[in-house]
Write a protein that binds this DNA or RNA. Structure first.
Length: 473
RNA sequence: GGCGACGUGGCCAAGUGGUAAGGCGAGGGUCUGCAAAACCCUUAUUCGCCGGUUCGAAUCCGGCCGUCGCCUCCA
């Protein structure tokens, strides 16, 4: 287990991370609101959280990861009403779509995916507690959190609660609030909306209470890390802190990590610009999901990520460099003592890779460590200096790094249709034998004919001093 | 108006006090029957601009310019 340093939004500085229970991390990440397909901005955040989860595991921690599914809120209700279907029937396909997207990007599953609609009793219990302690009040069947009762409100986002719109009437259905800044914990049912029974009559939970109630249920009243996109810092996470700590009197979350937004072609994604892609749209355009994952994880999570098709192309090339090394390694001869250069490179990778992760998840640094190994292995192959066992040791250290990155092994990403199409391996081998024969006889026309044929089948031939080798392009 | 982030080679991107990682691209080379593919090498005396602190700054402080985000439910 290695000490990690994280940039904690609460306090805005990089600090050593100490889980409440040594070696074990409780992690809550805000999940999707399932009113539509996730867009790639959402997925950037989910891939970052996957990277965090994998890094914690890699560095020797046990992880209990909870991600909620918001399946009741203004948007899901409105859209299900518009579509004339029950809420659950409306959200089901989007929940399915969400998990498909995670699979496409090789995001590992969390331990729990609690749904808001299945945790209403826990939320009601928490709201009752807040009412008892004077942190909330009821008006006409709705319950609001009383921000004035919370001394340190605003300490996550740095927003000063004393300024602003205190006492102003806001143009909404929430005019009955004591203070415009107060937020809804429970919303009285409106005509035609799904509702649950509560001590205050029929209604439904507010958004913020969902995350507090569900995170505490699965991780306890205090836990280690809470993640989300930067836009959730205020008001969502601020309100979670307010209601949770007011209810329990305990520190809610120790470390808050926020991922920056993804931009498309230099602009924020928005419907009006038409640049709000879903993953499925990108797949339909033929983008490689592995390259998309690489683009998401290869820059730092606290930096805005400008997503472009060029960046995906560059990612494809970068990954090919790693694949090529693996490919060359397979056919490179080994002999004699293990190469000291390889041994040193493997050791350096192990050290630099973990150090980069432990330093606030420096993904670029981690990738850089991988490429340093790639270069050293290539040089050693070039010198024909691979020693006995070097191949397996390199493969093993790559597999180790891949536990975090998830993009280093092309075999993991091969779709079944790709591998089943075209020529069989032995046919390709046979054609190459024929081509070598033709070349030996200086019948280059025949040799090139075979080369063209293989190329047309998507087989890339590489002629080397040790003879030809091939791979599927 | 309030709060905050960012500005590093052609592009992307690490690095936050000790003298610029890495990837893409480009140029050169090796290999080859020719190619292709691949590999190797090279590619920022300099980190938006101007001052300051320091033995030393891309890194700290001040000012300016520029880009962007949040300010009630958008990851």
């Amino acid at each position: 287990m290695r000490e990690i340093r994280f940039y904690n939004t609460l306090g805005r500085k990089v600090e050593p991370f100490t889980p409440r229970e040594p070696g074990s991390v409780g992690l809550y990440t805000c999940g999707p609101t399932v009113y539509d397909h996730a867009h790639i901005g959402n997925l950037r955040t989910f891939v970052f959280e996957d990277f965090l989860r994998r890094s914690l595991l890699y560095l020797g921690y046990r992880v209990n990861h909870v991600m909620n599914l918001t399946d009741v809120d203004d948007k899901t209700i409105q859209r299900s009403n518009d579509a004339g279907v029950e809420l659950d029937d409306y959200t089901a396909p989007y929940i399915e779509s969400f998990f498909e997207d995670l699979d496409t990007l090789h995001v590992e599953r969390a331990e729990h995916y609690p749904r808001a609609t299945e945790h209403v009793p826990e939320m009601i219990e928490m709201i009752e507690h807040l009412l008892e302690r004077g942190y909330a009040y009821e008006r006409d069947g709705s319950v609001y959190f009383r921000i004035a009762a919370d001394d340190d409100y605003g300490r996550l986002s740095g927003i000063d609660p004393s300024g602003g719109q205190r006492g102003e009437r806001v143009a909404s259905d929430e005019y009955e609030k004591e203070d415009a800044r107060d937020f809804g914990l429970w919303k009285a049912a409106k005509e035609g909306e799904p509702s649950w029974d509560s001590p205050w009559g029929a209604g439904r939970p507010g958004w913020h209470i969902e995350c507090s109630a569900m995170s505490m249920k699965y991780l306890g009243e205090s836990f280690d890390i809470h993640c989300g996109g930067v836009d959730n810092m205020f008001p969502h996470h601020e309100n979670e802190i307010a209601q949770s700590e007011s209810a329990t009197g305990e520190e809610f979350v120790h470390t808050w990590l926020h991922s920056e937004h993804l931009m498309v072609d230099g602009e924020k994604m928005s419907k009006s610009l038409g640049n709000q892609y879903t993953l499925k749209e990108l797949m339909a355009r033929g983008l490689d999901p592995r390259a998309v994952r690489y683009v998401f994880i290869s820059s730092h999570y606290r930096q805005k990520l400008n997503f472009t098709f060029d960046s995906v192309d560059a990612a494809v090339s970068a990954l090919e460099r790693v694949d090529q090394m693996r490919f060359r390694l397979e056919s490179a001869p080994e002999s004699g003592e293990p190469s000291p250069e390889i041994a040193a490179a493997i050791e350096r990778l192990g050290k630099d890779f973990a150090a980069a992760l432990a330093s606030d998840l420096n993904a670029s640094g981690a990738m850089s460590a991988v490429f340093a190994l790639v270069r050293e292995v290539n040089k050693t192959i070039e010198r024909d200096a691979l020693g006995d066992g070097d191949r397996n040791r390199v493969i093993a250290v790559l597999a180790d790094a891949n536990r975090v990155l998830g993009v280093l092994d092309p075999a993991d990403w091969q779709s079944s249709e790709e591998s089943s199409s075209g020529l069989a391996d032995n046919e390709i081998d046979q054609l190459l034998v024929e081509r070598q024969e033709a070349r030996k006889n200086r019948d280059f026309a025949a040799a090139d004919r075979i080369r063209d044929q293989l190329q047309a089948e998507g087989v890339v031939i590489e002629d080397t001093p040790q003879g030809p080798r091939w791979r599927r392009g």
